[in-house]
């Protein structure tokens, strides 16, 4: 759809306005939106959640959690600030303090009071990692430059690969 203002470029910013109880929609391209002073996610490189996280980290001085990469998937706080999404369930442990505060701001509480859950028994037993799991983790370790972890995984993979079947 074309921009309502210039009618030349594609509309990428969609505004819903309720003024005097009339609901109107406005579709603008990036240029016209900027010209009209509309703040868009296109001009701000961070995800809105990223802004909140940054404020949280500064306030709670948990910037030490900023650089740390998640042991399982290698995602960092920086990744979260850019996308607004975490890398894996283990990220909640890696960034526990920052996330606790972020959750408090988002939901008014960080403590779950709903249904409890217990994983099925078969999965509670420590299953040996499959070759696939190890290879995925090796790839992620290399990508996030955790070379010691990567070396360990590489050795485990080698051991599994050379095992007589």
């Amino acid at each position: 759809m074309l921009c309502d203002n210039c009618k030349e470029r594609d509309a990428v910013v969609h505004l819903t306005r309720i003024v005097d109880n009339a609901v109107t929609q406005l579709h603008l391209c990036e240029k016209c939106a900027a010209a009209k002073g509309v703040e868009t996610t296109l001009s701000v490189p961070q995800h809105p959640l990223g802004d909140i996280l940054q404020a949280v980290q500064q306030q709670a001085s948990t910037t030490s959690e900023d650089a740390a990469a998640c042991a399982f998937c290698g995602a960092t706080a920086r990744d979260f600030r850019a996308s607004g999404r975490l890398g894996c369930p283990h990220c909640y442990d890696a960034m526990e303090r920052s996330l606790r505060e972020l959750l408090r701001r988002l939901h008014g509480s960080s403590r779950h009071v709903g249904q409890r859950y217990e994983a099925p028994v078969a999965h509670l037993v420590d299953k040996p990692d499959t070759l696939h799991d190890l290879r995925d983790r090796l790839r992620r370790a290399v990508e996030s430059e955790q070379f010691e972890v990567a070396a360990e995984l590489r050795d485990r993979i080698k051991a599994l690969e050379t095992e007589p079947v």
Partner: peptide
């Protein structure tokens, strides 16, 4: 994926808990 304090874990924190 379930956390003792944060509940069910989701990709976006806006969905965590229940």
């Amino acid at each position: 994926a379930f956390h003792r304090e944060f509940g069910f874990l989701t990709a976006c924190p806006t969905n965590a808990g229940t």
